[in-house]
Design a protein around this nucleic acid. Structure first.
Lengths: 125, 125
DNA sequence: TCCCTGTCTCGACGTTTGTCAAATCAGCCA
DNA sequence: TGGCTGATTTGACAAACGTCGAGACAGGGA
């Protein structure tokens, strides 16, 4: 492994998945892939972490700006949640010298959003 | 309770939540609400159930078309998953005589999708 | 009325998850 | 080289989750 700019990991980086759930039934294999990503979003701390990363002005954020923050949780726990998001393919991390930076994986976030796309039919709750 | 057309439950039916995570950091309260819905999507069986319901031609589907299907899981387990989706506010159920029908809650699905909205910047992974 | 079918609830089980403290790894600098 | 800071891994534990079988409830029909 080279020393600089190592992309930590991003196992589920499939390109494009499937039509919106409103258009056709998801097949079991696709459902497993997508569920892994949704599960990663199923925790308030991870959702806030992802939001911080995704909305960062520079497109990335240093972990040093996160740890011991207003998350009311220990450093290792933050690290654990970042790993879950990383292994789900929603973010990717990179070490630059002392610090580690995270940024979003746009394609996969977009994939989730379009999977949930529904037309707002009038009269529907 | 009246006998016909009883809406089973739909506790988290908040109207509109928050800007996309890419635009501003989610506050803790909103993150908790949204995470509850995402967690409900974090299981392959539930995702497939939601897809079946959401893509049903009539806008709703009878549980009798689901139970003992190709989900490789028992009836009570299907029932459990439907309950999780229901309590997350993603679907709602209604009994009509012998059968129970489920349909999607469009507003909340839309809310999740727009929370994940990201612009596909060129050159981003 | 009684039974039958469809759906849900209850209780139990093994597994997974979220959390922490302690230890470890990675890179910088004296 | 050694020590320092930043970030992750490990090991442990309680809580939550997914699953099932058994039983209960709801409605329809004989």
């Amino acid at each position: 492994m080279s020393k600089q700019l190592v992309v930590l990991d991003n196992p589920t980086n499939q390109e494009v998945c499937c039509p919106p759930i409103a258009e056709a039934s998801l097949d079991p294999g696709q459902a497993t892939d997508m569920a892994r990503m949704f599960k990663a979003l199923g925790d308030p701390i991870r959702l806030r972490l992802l939001s911080r990363i995704t909305s960062a002005p520079d497109g990335e954020i240093c972990v040093c700006e996160i740890t011991g923050d207003d998350f009311n949780v220990s450093g290792p726990t933050i690290s654990h949640h970042l790993k879950v998001l990383r292994e789900a393919g929603l973010i990717e991390g990179e070490r630059r010298g002392t610090w580690v930076y995270y940024r979003r994986v746009t394609a996969n976030l977009h994939q989730l959003a379009s999977l949930l796309a529904v037309q707002e039919t009038a009269g529907t709750v």
